[in-house]
Design a protein around this nucleic acid. Structure first.
Lengths: 227, 227
DNA sequence: GAACTCATGTAAGGGGTTACATGATTAA
DNA sequence: TTAATCATGTAACCCCTTACATGAGTTC
């Protein structure tokens, strides 16, 4: 019997996903990545070309060579039946939790080692960073929007959903970082803190009055049901 | 002259950061990771022990052996002066943009290959997943809160800020995913779509009426200033 | 002439993941 | 007696990043 295809790594799945939209060459793929997925997924050419050949050897892809005389020939890849099935199987598997390599979080975690002014600068620059990211996504969004009525409209629609989700999340980063800014001066309850004043008893019990942007349940922070 | 210390990789920085709170053994470090940073940063023992020895060889750390008779001896590591400086230098460098390996986003991107019912199930399970993550963070939060008045209160305060930020972001994931759910049936403007009805002209121009949760600027989606 | 695009690749090195190995003690 | 905790490690493998190589055409 044929060997069970081992679980696909992220790069392979990404390639299957992009080829499921339309057949493409390795070069097309690198450009796809750059355009839409830049900043969340970078797959340099040095990784894509070997992956394509391997996946063809394994039967996930089929190739045909497009001969061009004025330019180098193109090797155009498309999904095989096996590739289709593998992709579908991946789609139907439960979603894995996002893995975040989040330097900002890490710096927040140990921010007591920075003087106050540098804390502020750090947070501020992060906010700017995220905001420029959001701007970039707005651009991608408006470009995609133009193709909504085109032949691949269905696919574009869901690409826009994904971009929209990412944008929502990054915008939440910005809002949260701005709230964090108000707490950056540390736990010493100095005189001219910028914390919103509530009743004093409440402030003692919960020093992070409005850190959580959208509390669903007023008991969430003080309650310790488990354990 | 001594060789310029090459840029620290994330694992090393994480180790420096945790040791800056207090001296610890490799075993302590793995437990620290599990407790607070589980799900955002997993550093298995097989990576930590070699890293510790390397970093000691390179002069970032100092070791002392704690001899125990009833249990195996502990090698307790602490920051050297060089380690202190390297850590400080990292803190002062500008924050890198977060790198997200986000399977949900990826599946959204190509979700047109799934039948509607499975799209719904996928999104729903992701929401649940994130919500249980938030619950976990509430637990961590309440545990940390107990140490706020302890000897490491200053450090704990900023750890809580970091956890709080992460929680805000994950909660945004949940809210955004719920909005996405309403668009999961695709671009075909069927009769019983659950989109909120606005005036029809607007709906044609912007099919994602309330996708963006917190618009700051009403022109953001239709305007295409650049290019 | 210099720089950029199209188009495909190779090679080196580093980091992360997983599994395995050891060995004593303590709790179910 | 079985499993779990404490405590440290090794080794294999895979993936990813970066840099380099080629070479024709096209644009400034």
């Amino acid at each position: 019997m044929t060997k069970e295809p081992k679980e696909l790594d992220p790069l392979r799945v990404a390639i299957l996903g992009l080829l499921s939209i339309r057949p493409m060459s390795g070069y097309d793929l690198t450009r796809s990545y750059k355009r839409a997925l830049d900043r969340i997924w970078q797959a340099p050419a040095g990784q894509i070309y070997p992956a394509l050949r391997t996946m063809e050897r394994e039967g996930f892809l089929e190739v045909s060579v497009e001969i061009q005389d004025t330019r180098p020939n193109r090797k155009v890849y498309r999904l095989s039946a096996l590739g289709q099935r593998a992709f579908q199987a991946w789609l139907e598997r439960p979603v894995r939790a996002p893995v975040v390599h989040h330097e900002f979080l890490h710096k927040l975690f140990v921010m007591d080692h920075l003087p106050l002014e540098q804390r502020r600068a750090m947070i501020e620059s992060y906010v700017q960073n995220c905001q420029s990211w959001v701007d970039h996504m707005k651009l991608v969004d408006s470009k995609l929007r133009g193709s909504l009525d085109g032949p691949q409209g269905e696919s574009v629609y869901f690409q826009m959903l994904a971009i929209g989700h990412l944008r929502n999340v990054i915008e939440a980063e910005v809002r949260s970082a701005k709230v964090i800014m108000r707490y950056a001066d540390g736990p010493h309850a100095g005189g001219r803190r910028r914390r919103p004043r509530r009743n004093t008893a409440d402030a003692r019990a919960n020093p992070f009055g409005d850190l959580y942007l959208f509390p669903e349940d007023p008991d969430q922070v003080s309650g310790e049901r488990a354990n």
